[in-house]
């Protein structure tokens, strides 16, 4: 059994007298330990709703979600599930609770009821991982967007989760901040963490193990980045754009150049182009 499994999951928002809105329809999905998967889709495709199903913040209207064999609808196990599946949100300002960076990182471990010495050790470790040791005493509102997001990541890391779900963590950041956050995520990946990365930037899915494309609450495509980039029509249908390199390769091939499929980075494109002569 996979680490996280979604079986026939549907989610419907019901608010007062308004007509119900179905955000997700019959999603089947599994995430293996140590994997990095990307979930991508345009606005309103249900990707943020999907994110909140992974750790029981939302309960599916139909179907079931299980994490490490535990069902997220089991209220007795919900805190274990949330400890195992951490979550970083889109807006860096709205997920920081404390007035000081180290207190912020300690918040999660404190909630787990760990002894003070353990918390201190974990805070040190987490701040070292995201490279913000010298900001221990800083107030979050004095940090840049990218730094705030790294503090949020440290706060999750200190809880020692197996999996971290990122819900569009770079959507509100400048290019610098985006780079910092992406580098930190790669670090987490090399630490062996399972990563679910939700985004609407195609460029960011290039080095994931698996990509899932959502459109209007349905999974329309799943595969490795290479496989997904071949399905140009479906991508276009979902209001998404190919990243620059695969797009360039596609246009070059259209123009008659004999290029292979597996080109995702500028470096490999240069190499393959040089081989042509």
């Amino acid at each position: 059994m996979a680490f996280i499994e979604l079986k026939d999951v549907s989610y419907t928002y019901i608010e007062g007298d308004e007509p119900p809105v179905t955000a997700l329809k019959n999603i089947n999905l599994s995430v293996e330990k140590g994997e990095m998967i990307a979930i991508i889709g345009p606005n309103g495709s249900g990707k943020s709703t999907l994110a909140k199903l992974f750790n029981g913040l939302f309960q599916p209207t139909e179907g079931s979600v299980s994490v490490g064999g535990l069902n997220t609808s089991d209220q007795d196990k919900i805190w274990d599930i949330r400890q195992q599946v951490g979550m970083v949100f889109q807006n860096p300002d709205n997920q920081l609770i404390a007035t000081m960076v180290e207190e912020e990182v300690a918040f999660g471990p404190e909630n787990l009821g760990l002894p003070s010495a353990t918390i201190k050790a974990r805070v040190d470790e987490a701040l070292a991982l995201v490279g913000l040791e010298e900001f221990r005493q800083a107030a979050p509102h004095h940090l840049s967007g990218g730094q705030k997001q790294r503090v949020a990541i440290a706060g999750i890391f200190a809880m020692r989760p197996d999996c971290i779900v990122f819900d569009e963590p770079t959507a509100m950041l400048d290019p610098m901040g985006r780079k910092e956050v992406m580098a930190t995520i790669q670090k987490l990946r090399s630490e062996g963490k399972t990563i679910v990365y939700i985004t609407h930037f195609m460029e960011e899915v290039v080095d994931c193990d698996r990509v899932i494309i959502l459109k209007e609450g349905e999974k329309i495509l799943e595969g490795t980045p290479l496989e997904v980039f071949q399905a140009r029509e479906l991508i276009k249908d979902a209001d998404l754009e190919l990243p620059e390199v695969p797009y360039l390769v596609y246009r070059l091939r259209e123009a008659g150049l004999q290029l292979p499929d597996e080109i995702l980075t500028p470096e490999s494109l240069v190499e393959k182009l040089c081989l042509l002569n």
């Binding site: 951490g86 999660g108 404190e110 009821g113």
Partner: peptide, 14 residues
């Protein structure tokens, strides 16, 4: 909530 906050009960301090 995602960070397991459930009030002061069982919470420790750094």
């Amino acid at each position: 909530e995602a960070r397991c906050y459930r009030g002061g009960e069982g919470r420790t301090r750094m």
